[in-house]
Amino acid sequence: MTLPLEVKQINKRFKDGETYIDVLKTIDFKIKKGEFVAIVGPSGSGKSTLLSIIGALLSTDEGNVLINGKSVKNLDESQRSEVRLNDIGFIFQTAELLPYLHAEDQLDLVAKLNNMDKKERKERAKALLTDVGLEKRRKHYPHQLSGGEKQRVAVARAFMNDPALILADEPTASLDEDRSHEIVSLIKQEVKAKDKAAIMVTHDESLLTYCDRVFRMKDHHLIEDK
């Protein structure tokens, strides 16, 4: 069985003036379907860099990432776009919705980019918005929604193209404590219901109870809590 995500011996360095700084050293892990994984660590520890590499937004210096068994290593920009569109669902720190689309159209857009047919798009968007509790706010624009509601739309959008892997980059950074717990439990609920793999980068230790496994960034290495 192919795993949603395999990360193999990743190294990443950034150039700083004339010297190189190691950001990630020999990162190596796998995630199975239905697993909700957290990555925690202090600011600047390389969490977001790691998530960018897994999300085919950034290349590695050494090592490889397999998404759904496919290597993203030697892909060009257009092929990476395809991988991000088909195989990965992104949830960002703020919802990052387009201001001129109502909730249903936000979901419709990503499915349209993926050439899904119209009927299926409509049905999926409706079902997902119902899952995240926004069935009554389908036609609301971002400026008519609260911060928590916007992030719910973003969660629904991440699942729209039925990706194997969900990547959430500090999804609660702009929310208060109650909303944070709501959103993370919602992500967990969807991950379990749809049997996806998910990685969440977070600062907030209190959210780790929702996750199946917890990794910590320490001295550029990723260490799993046992």
Partner: peptide, 10 residues
């Protein structure tokens, strides 16, 4: 650069 979407907090 699409990577700018990531890691605004770091």
């Amino acid at each position: 650069d699409p990577q700018q979407a990531m890691g605004g907090a770091e």
